[in-house]
Design a binder for these strands. Structure first.
Lengths: 151, 151
DNA sequence: GACATTGGTTTGCATTACCAATCAAACTCA
DNA sequence: TGAGTTTGATTGGTAATGCAAACCAATGTC
């Protein structure tokens, strides 16, 4: 099937904006000694309390990769491991206060860093863009895997 | 300055779509034994012939990082190094036929992988979305890249 | 011509990521 | 119940990525 021009142009735009956003995230992360993945982990764990393997699956990483990742974040006091009460094999990852503070700061920096870009649109266009992006985004999560402990 | 809601929502959408696109690129790259960065290098070198340091600057990478990156791609026959005629210190990176073929295939796979997502919009919406993204994207590197404050 | 600058590579180190192997806990079902 | 399987996580090994510092060669500048 021949891809029509609108698709071609859209994909190009999406890919370029992805690289641009990633570059911002990478830079801001680096300024706080955090990799892109660490950044992402913080963002996820911020309002969830997933088990290691759920987190790995969500990130699309191997469980063993996650072990090291959490190790380092734990050593820095940003995250903590907790034994799951329901399943003694499982380990639950949760964010510490320090981690939450840092994440909050990071979010603000990201917003500021992207402001020049988003600022080139007026409020109505921004709303429209966000609205058009919505359908493109995959279903964020198959619902809450469990109404987990809400903080 | 309080960020208005439209900005908040837009940034969230941009970041999420960035992760989604990256995840596709990473997967497709991995299927061909290419990292995200290698993928990106191929895409850039596809229609350019930059020198090592220009490429490094554009990618936001250290020169030493690029050396290894190009080494591996060269060993696989995807890229080649060429002495610059103007400056005997400089090395120019160029794509091989094999590299071009692979890049072409990758592009098609990316398009197909993203089709389900972009397909949730009709042609008119796609065009509109691409159009709205345009201003958000930074000036896509003119021939003369300014050595911006990028570390 | 001496000296600094620029362009690339090499070396050393930490991180990221995969796979395979391992161990403990939980589940199955005969 | 108990043997065997599956599941959750860690460990160890390897490769790739990335930075920084040291280095060499070509250029540029006075």
């Amino acid at each position: 099937m021949a891809p029509d021009d609108s698709e071609e142009a859209l994909i190009d735009g999406l890919v370029r904006s992805a690289f641009q956003v990633m570059s911002v995230l990478t830079r801001i992360g680096a300024e706080h000694d955090l990799s892109l993945t660490q950044l992402r982990v913080l963002g996820i764990v911020r309002d969830r309390r997933p088990r290691m393997s759920d987190l790995a699956a969500f990130l699309g990483l191997d469980k063993s990769t996650l072990s090291g990742l959490i190790d380092r974040a734990e050593r820095r006091g940003l995250l903590a491991r907790h034994a799951s009460p329901e399943d003694k094999r499982a380990v639950v990852v949760l964010i510490t206060d320090a981690g939450r503070d840092l994440t909050q700061r990071l979010y603000e920096e990201v917003r500021e860093a992207l402001a020049p870009a988003t600022g080139r649109l007026d409020a109505q266009q921004r709303q429209q863009l966000a609205h058009l992006l919505e359908p493109v985004l995959t279903p964020p999560l198959p619902a809450a895997p469990r109404p987990a402990t809400r903080r």
